[in-house]
């Protein structure tokens, strides 16, 4: 198995932790009433957890069938991350991601708009930081608070020392994503697998970020659970591996699971559900003879 570059999913610089700390000690701002977003994930969070009348604009991507969960309210303008699109809307809060649309965010800041950059999350700990930053920016929101609590509860048991840990069965799992990509020990997906009680075979092979795994290796490693990633509804040669007949026995015997596509671009929305489903899957596998 060959480890590939860290990709965009790098570890956070120390500056991000300092920024998070500053968020924590800053006084909460008055709740924004005209919120705009320049980031797909933040769009999704706003559309799902914030009352629609408080949203003035989201990115055009959110209106695409691939990402849209519900119709976008009519009064919400779609932007292509250009500052000039947001100025006439006079938002009192502009949410931006850590990397994308930086030029537009900087221009809006120069013009006196309140721009808040929400850190990306590539681990469960970063996810908690991200939710904290969102609460700080948006003010108290019951669904957001509920998600934070869910996350904290799911993380808690793993922190406690379990005296019978040695007796607990740990089935093995391997992620086979598009283009034969697999996820190693430094990734959120690995954390979800291990917190659900699986041993991630990619991490066992020494992969720490993204790696490549061939179908031959999947068969040779014999994972108890084969984990696909994202929707394969649209045709792509990239998905050819998971359609190979050699994996049919995994699918037929129920020893496969599909991580939701949203986990890749917005873990805040998908991580908790995915973890619960993986835990359930593990329980089923352990019961099997």
């Amino acid at each position: 198995m060959i480890a590939v570059g860290r990709g965009y999913a790098g570890r956070p610089p120390a500056a991000r932790w300092i920024a998070a700390l500053l968020f924590a000690i800053a006084l909460p701002a008055p709740a924004a009433e005209r919120i705009a977003s320049l980031n797909l994930c933040l769009d999704q969070i706003l559309l799902r957890w914030v009352p629609p009348q408080r949203i003035v604009s989201v990115t055009w991507l959110s209106a695409e069938a691939q990402y849209r969960n519900a119709p976008i309210p009519e009064h919400v303008a779609l932007n292509r991350a250009q500052a000039e699109e947001l100025i006439p809307l006079q938002p009192d809060l502009v949410l931006a991601g850590q990397f994308g649309a930086q030029r537009a965010a900087a221009r809006l800041e120069e013009m006196g708009f309140r721009v808040v950059r929400i850190p990306d999350a590539y681990t469960l700990e970063q996810l908690q930081t991200q939710l904290g930053a969102l609460e700080q920016a948006l003010g108290p929101l019951p669904p957001l608070r509920a998600r934070q609590q869910q996350l904290a509860e799911l993380l808690a048991p793993a922190r406690q020392k379990n005296p019978q840990a040695a007796d607990v069965k740990h089935p093995t799992a391997l992620i086979l994503s598009a283009n034969n990509i697999t996820y190693g020990s430094g990734m959120l997906e690995h954390q979800l697998l291990t917190r659900a009680g699986f041993i991630n075979l990619a991490a066992e092979q020494g992969i720490d970020q993204l790696g490549r795994v061939s179908l031959e290796q999947v068969i040779a490693l014999q994972p108890d659970l084969l984990v696909f990633y994202g929707g394969a509804q649209d045709f792509a040669i990239a998905h050819l591996a998971e359609r190979h007949p050699v994996l049919k026995r995994y699918i037929d015997s129920g020893r496969s699971y599909r991580l939701p596509e949203a986990l890749g671009y917005c873990p805040a929305l998908a991580a908790v559900d995915a973890l619960e489903q993986l835990q359930q899957k593990r329980a089923e596998l352990v019961q099997q003879p």
Binding site: Q66, A178, N179, D234, F235, A236, I237, A238, H239
Partner: peptide, 10 residues
């Protein structure tokens, strides 16, 4: 213009 995330790569 294909509706797939990987279309250009392909």
């Amino acid at each position: 213009y294909a509706p797939s995330m990987f279309a250009m790569q392909e």
